[in-house]
Amino acid sequence: MSRRATPSTRTFTDYLGEATDRRGMYSAVAAHTGARRVVYAVSSLDVTPSYVWPDVTYVDTDQRARVAFADTASAVRLADQHKTYEGEPRIRFLGGEYDRVLGALPVASWDLVISLHAGPVGANAARCLKPGGWLLAAGREPGEGYRLDAAVLLSKGKYRLVTDGLDRAAAGYVFRREA
């Protein structure tokens, strides 16, 4: 597979060069949850979940994301260069408001929903999450039907996941969907 930069690849890498690098967060969450299929609500151009998880569906209304993900092959090439798993990355993009898109996804088909910019998506995410699935959120209020399981802390540029002292401020919170 060619590793040449395409206009879409440059769009992703330009964004990633300016954005917070969350690969450490995603790796900690992956190790904790064992998730394989992921939905990222309001993803913008953050393709780094595909460095950690082999099957990621990105959801956003942003025009830049629509244009960049129109050529998913460029996102796959970028993920393939940085992935931490065996096999080919599977990347899909669904344009639209996350509540509508999550509501239209197949029931109980995903292991993890990422919501770092979307606000409380718990109610919409519950439908597409498998029983016992996970939600990674920036906020502490995921909605009904979730139990706080872990916090992702950021200190000196390193992420770590903790399961005690969950009342502290964190870079992200991991919730388990109650079956």
Score class of each variant (00 low, 15 high):
residue 10 R to Y: 10
residue 160 R to L: 01
residue 115 S to E: 12
residue 56 V to P: 11
residue 55 D to M: 04
residue 114 I to Y: 07
residue 107 V to T: 11
residue 62 D to W: 13
residue 90 R to H: 15
residue 27 S to N: 04
residue 27 S to W: 01
residue 83 K to E: 04
residue 137 A to K: 03
residue 142 P to I: 04
residue 78 L to E: 15
residue 24 G to H: 14
residue 20 T to G: 01
residue 167 D to P: 00
residue 118 A to P: 05
residue 68 A to R: 08
residue 156 K to P: 00
residue 22 R to F: 01
residue 42 V to H: 05
residue 96 G to V: 09
residue 113 V to L: 09
residue 105 L to I: 02
residue 40 Y to S: 12
residue 29 V to C: 09
residue 78 L to V: 10
residue 159 Y to T: 01
residue 64 R to A: 15
residue 173 Y to P: 08
residue 117 H to T: 11
residue 98 Y to H: 15
residue 116 L to D: 09
residue 137 A to C: 05
residue 114 I to G: 04
residue 78 L to D: 11
residue 43 S to K: 06
residue 49 P to Q: 09
residue 127 R to F: 07
residue 119 G to C: 07
residue 63 Q to L: 11
residue 131 P to D: 08
residue 98 Y to K: 06
residue 89 P to K: 08
residue 79 A to E: 06
residue 88 E to H: 07
residue 41 A to N: 03
residue 45 L to E: 00
residue 147 R to L: 00
residue 98 Y to Q: 08
residue 159 Y to C: 01
residue 137 A to M: 11
residue 111 D to I: 11
residue 173 Y to G: 03
residue 40 Y to H: 14
residue 28 A to G: 07
residue 44 S to N: 07
residue 76 V to K: 12
residue 43 S to P: 06
residue 46 D to V: 12
residue 118 A to G: 14
residue 31 A to D: 13
residue 3 R to V: 09
residue 59 V to R: 10
residue 50 S to E: 03
residue 177 R to H: 10
residue 41 A to M: 10
residue 45 L to M: 12
residue 52 V to C: 07
residue 43 S to D: 04
residue 103 G to I: 13
residue 59 V to P: 13
residue 77 R to D: 14
residue 67 V to G: 10
residue 109 S to Q: 11
residue 128 C to H: 08
residue 112 L to G: 04
residue 64 R to V: 01
residue 20 T to R: 10
residue 101 V to Q: 09
residue 43 S to L: 05
residue 15 Y to V: 04
residue 69 F to I: 04
residue 31 A to R: 12
residue 23 R to L: 06
residue 14 D to N: 15
residue 157 G to N: 00
residue 45 L to H: 03
residue 79 A to G: 06
residue 53 W to G: 02
residue 165 G to N: 11
residue 96 G to P: 14
residue 29 V to K: 08
residue 175 F to S: 01
residue 20 T to P: 03
residue 88 E to N: 04
residue 39 V to D: 02
residue 34 G to Y: 06
residue 58 Y to V: 09
residue 30 A to E: 12
residue 38 V to Y: 02
residue 73 A to I: 01
residue 169 A to I: 01
residue 101 V to A: 05
residue 44 S to M: 03
residue 45 L to D: 05
residue 156 K to A: 13
residue 38 V to Q: 01
residue 112 L to H: 00
residue 94 L to V: 14
residue 124 N to D: 12
residue 42 V to I: 02
residue 102 L to K: 13
residue 80 D to T: 15
residue 21 D to I: 04
residue 16 L to D: 02
residue 118 A to F: 07
residue 175 F to A: 05
residue 85 Y to I: 01
residue 165 G to P: 05
residue 69 F to G: 13
residue 49 P to E: 05
residue 114 I to R: 10
residue 69 F to C: 12
residue 169 A to E: 11
residue 127 R to G: 14
residue 3 R to P: 01
residue 150 A to H: 03
residue 32 H to G: 02
residue 14 D to S: 14
residue 79 A to R: 13
residue 36 R to N: 00
residue 88 E to D: 08
residue 162 V to I: 14
residue 55 D to H: 15
residue 87 G to C: 02
